[in-house]
C-alpha cells in the first residue's frame, strides 16, 4: 500500500479551486485535474485529494485508486531535484547498475525515496527512449547521456 503523508502546515487550496472551477461540471477530467494539482503542489497531499473529492462529488476511494494506478502521481512529498536513472536493457548492459549504486551511496537513499531534507528524489526507471545515449539519466527534465559512475558522482557534487 502506498503511504499517505500528512502535511504539517496548512495548504493553500486557492489555486486548486481555480482548476476545479475550470473543470466544474465536466466528467472525465479527473486525471487532468490531478496532473495540474501535482504541478502546483509537487505531489498530491491528502488535503488536495479530499478537496477534489468533495468539490467534484467523486468518492475518495476512486481518486485514490486512480492516483495509485498511475506511476506519474505521487502521494508523498518529493525532493527539489528529481533524478531518474534508466536501468533498462541497453543502459543495464552498459553499466547503469553501478551508476544506481553511486546515487544510492551518495544520497543515502534507495530507488523511490526522497532525502530527509527534501532536496533529492531518486527513481530507477526502465527505458527513457534514448538508448543510443545509454546509460541515460534524466535530472529535472534534462537528459544526460553516456554517463559513468564518475560523471554521476561529479554531477551530484555540482548540484549540492
Amino acid at each position: 500500500m502506498s503511504q499517505v503523508s500528512m502535511q504539517s502546515e496548512p495548504l493553500d487550496l486557492k489555486p486548486l479551486d481555480e482548476i476545479l472551477s475550470e473543470y466544474a461540471g465536466r466528467t472525465g477530467t479527473l486525471i487532468t485535474i490531478l496532473q495540474r494539482a501535482q504541478e502546483i503542489y509537487g505531489y498530491l497531499p491528502p488535503e488536495v485529494l479530499l478537496h477534489i473529492a468533495e468539490r467534484g462529488d467523486i468518492p475518495l476511494s476512486q481518486i485514490y485508486g486512480v492516483v495509485t494506478f498511475y506511476s506519474q502521481f505521487y502521494l508523498t512529498r518529493r525532493g527539489k531535484h528529481i533524478i531518474r536513472q534508466c536501468d533498462g536493457t541497453a543502459c543495464h548492459v552498459r553499466g547503469a547498475g553501478k551508476i544506481v549504486d553511486v546515487v544510492e551511496h551518495e544520497l543515502n537513499i534507495v530507488d523511490g525515496e526522497t532525502t530527509p531534507d527534501y532536496k533529492y528524489s531518486f527513481e530507477v526507471v526502465y527505458c527513457l527512449g534514448s538508448c543510443g545515449l545509454s546509460p541515460v539519466a534524466v535530472i529535472d527534465d534534462t537528459v544526460y547521456g553516456r554517463l559513468s559512475p564518475e560523471k554521476m558522482a561529479q554531477m551530484l557534487k555540482e548540484m549540492h
Binding site: M1, L49, A53
Partner: peptide, 17 residues
C-alpha cells in the same frame, strides 16, 4: 488501488466518506 497484479482492495482513511 495500485494496478495489475499489485491491485489491492483498500479504504482511503481520513476522509469525510
Amino acid at each position: 488501488v495500485e494496478r495489475g497484479f499489485r491491485s489491492e482492495i483498500d479504504m482511503f482513511k481520513g476522509g469525510e466518506t
